[in-house]
């Protein structure tokens, strides 16, 4: 290990201990395990800074936070999964005595052979771990893939496809002619003047049209088709830019939240 690394480590350890002591003594008037809580707040601040240090480069502190995060989060996910899926979903259907032990309401209708099938499929899935029975684990996977492929087939055909077609049916010719004056009034992008509305409707229609042309795979993008496709990708790019810009603000407010933690909860400066 380099000397500079050692010095940085030592400084971090000293700062950590200092923060722990200060934090714990600040918490002392309140009852409860203040030493533990002082440690936890300091540790949270340390982890926050450790992750942020990744912006500079990969370093031991980031590695520490990363590996701890992976382990703890996997355990968290498993514990939550144990109660939300095993205890809530599986147990009530398997046996009355198990349901009584876990104190979950049993489902009288569910207590039948039907519910042993997924358990058997689950056990087949575990056969992956054996070097020779691995092939049978494809059955449960096939079941999951098949069921959800059918489900998604319908879901997307309905929501993404048919509904989107029907919502493209917008007035392009204007509803009522009230003379040239009202038609040209309110020439402003945010206004609801007739001309502006009509233009917007045309942009939507042409946007969908050219966008779909861009997604044509089996036809060469040449000539008029090529022009359509190019306009399509331009409109796509404008949209992506707008959506990019839209997200920036939201992300910055997240950063504000973290800065508030560091300077408020930990250092109590703001």
């Amino acid at each position: 290990m380099k000397k500079s690394t050692l010095i940085v480590m030592a400084v971090v350890v000293v700062l950590f201990l200092l923060s722990w002591v200060l934090k714990a003594s600040a918490l002392q008037p309140e009852q409860g395990s203040y030493i533990l809580r002082g440690f936890l707040v300091t540790f949270a601040a340390f982890l926050t800074l450790a992750v942020m240090s990744f912006l500079y480069q990969d370093n031991p502190f980031y590695k520490f936070a990363e590996h701890l995060f992976v382990g703890v989060s996997a355990a968290f996910w498993m514990c939550m999964g144990f109660w939300t899926t095993i205890v809530q979903n599986l147990i009530p259907r398997l046996s009355t005595s198990l349901a009584d032990y876990f104190m979950v309401p049993q489902r009288p209708e569910g207590l039948n052979l039907f519910f042993y099938t997924p358990v058997i499929l689950g056990i087949l899935l575990l056969m992956r771990l054996s070097p020779r029975g691995g092939w049978i684990s494809r059955w449960p996977l096939a079941f999951i893939v098949g069921t959800t492929a059918g489900l998604n087939f319908i879901r997307y055909l309905r929501s993404d496809f048919i509904k989107q077609i029907s919502s493209t049916f917008v007035p392009l010719l204007g509803t009522q002619w009230e003379g040239i004056g009202p038609f040209l009034s309110n020439l402003d992008l945010s206004a609801s003047g007739q001309l502006v509305l009509l233009l917007s409707n045309w942009v939507v229609f042409l946007g969908v049209f050219t966008g779909l042309i861009y997604f044509f795979f089996s036809k060469e993008h040449k000539g008029a088709f090529g022009v359509g496709s190019r306009v399509g990708i331009w409109i796509l790019m404008i949209t992506f830019g707008a959506s990019f810009g839209y997200t920036v603000m939201g992300r910055i407010s997240l950063l504000v939240g973290r800065i508030t933690f560091l300077f408020g909860t930990w250092l109590e400066l703001i």
Binding site: F54, Q57, D58, E66, F69, V70, A74, W77
Partner: peptide, 19 residues
């Protein structure tokens, strides 16, 4: 398998990329 928490997964994959 890494983990099923969004940013924990990212942290690990980012680490992989740099190492």
């Amino acid at each position: 398998f890494v983990t099923s928490l969004q940013f924990a997964y990212v942290a690990a994959v980012n680490g992989l990329m740099l190492r």
